[in-house]
Simulated scan of single mutants.
Amino acid sequence: MPYVDTHCHLDHHEVLSPAEQVERARAAGVTTMITIGTDMASSTQAVRTAARFDGVWAAVGVHPNDAMEATPQVLEVIDRLAQDGNVVAIGETGLDYYRDYTTPAQQEASFRSHIQIARAHDRTLVVHCRDAWDDCLDVLLDEGAPERVVMHCFSGDLDVTKRCVEQGWYLSFAGNVTFGNAADLREAAAAVPLDLLLTETDSPFLTPHPHRGKPNDPSYVPYTLRTLAQVQARPLDEVEAAVHGNALRAFALPADRGTHPA
């Protein structure tokens, strides 16, 4: 069963080129990757990168830490990119109160605009949330979430997990779920229904155990999936099959392993 990396930054890696990362990923059985933009420039590049490789798709958006850059002109570009056939998602967007690079008001305005773009073009919304769960969920519900929502690099507690599950939103786990100090995160992962579970690397960040200290890349996503199978107390092949199917639904991908249509 092929693996899926629903959130990576192929153009952010300082050691490996996108082509090298894709080659490594395929050798590890990772056949579908979604490369994520965080501002106008990286979103534009993500679309170009996705166009180069079968099984690679793009998400476009402005990260909440860069929300001051989400001007009407930049959002117009994101809206235009959203209509590209290689783009399957809007984001990553959301709220991040861990860092104070941008104000909560700037982040909320940008977040609402991204939600509107995702709805307008029937794209999946990829949400970044850190230390802002109540406000993040309130904005989603108030603005009206699109049909498909993915909580990227999920870090919520059991209560947040329950609230997201009630809305039918997908919860995506990265390499930090393998960390020794992540017992609470593994507890949350164990509580996610199998049909809402996703895997990602967030590479080149959050390299999973036992490769911590090295830059992450999509080839490492199987480590995260194996941890999820353990905490869910399910056979590995069952979780592999479920996560693959979930990714196809979550991002409205074609069923042929996520490859681009002819």
Rank of each mutant, 00 (worst) to 15 (best):
R163M: 06
E108A: 08
E166I: 01
L95D: 04
H128S: 01
A46C: 14
D134A: 15
S155K: 10
V126W: 08
A41N: 11
A118M: 10
A105C: 00
C153Y: 05
P64Q: 04
D157K: 03
D100M: 07
C136R: 01
M151T: 05
G168C: 08
Q45E: 14
D79G: 15
Q116K: 14
G85Q: 13
G91E: 11
N65I: 00
R123C: 10
Y101G: 01
Q73K: 14
Y170C: 10
V87G: 09
V126F: 13
E92S: 12
D157T: 05
W57V: 05
L95V: 06
T124W: 08
W169L: 09
H114W: 06
M68Q: 13
D96M: 03
H114N: 05
A58H: 07
V160W: 10
D96N: 12
A46I: 07
A59E: 13
A51S: 15
T71W: 02
V165W: 05
T103S: 14
A58T: 06
T49L: 15
E69G: 03
T102R: 10
A105W: 05
R148I: 12
W57P: 03
G94F: 02
G55Y: 09
S172F: 04
A89R: 02
V88F: 06
V56I: 11
L158D: 13
A41S: 11
A145F: 09
T71P: 07
E143Q: 15
A89T: 02
Y98G: 01
F173H: 02
T161L: 03
V88A: 04
S113D: 14
D138R: 15
M68G: 11
S43R: 01
W169P: 08
W169M: 14
D138Y: 11
T49C: 10
F53S: 10
S42E: 08
L141K: 13
G144D: 11
R119H: 09
D54P: 11
Q116G: 04
T124I: 09
T161I: 05
V47W: 01
T38L: 04
D138C: 06
W57Y: 09
D84N: 15
A109I: 06
D122L: 00
G144P: 07
H63R: 12
V126N: 13
L81G: 12
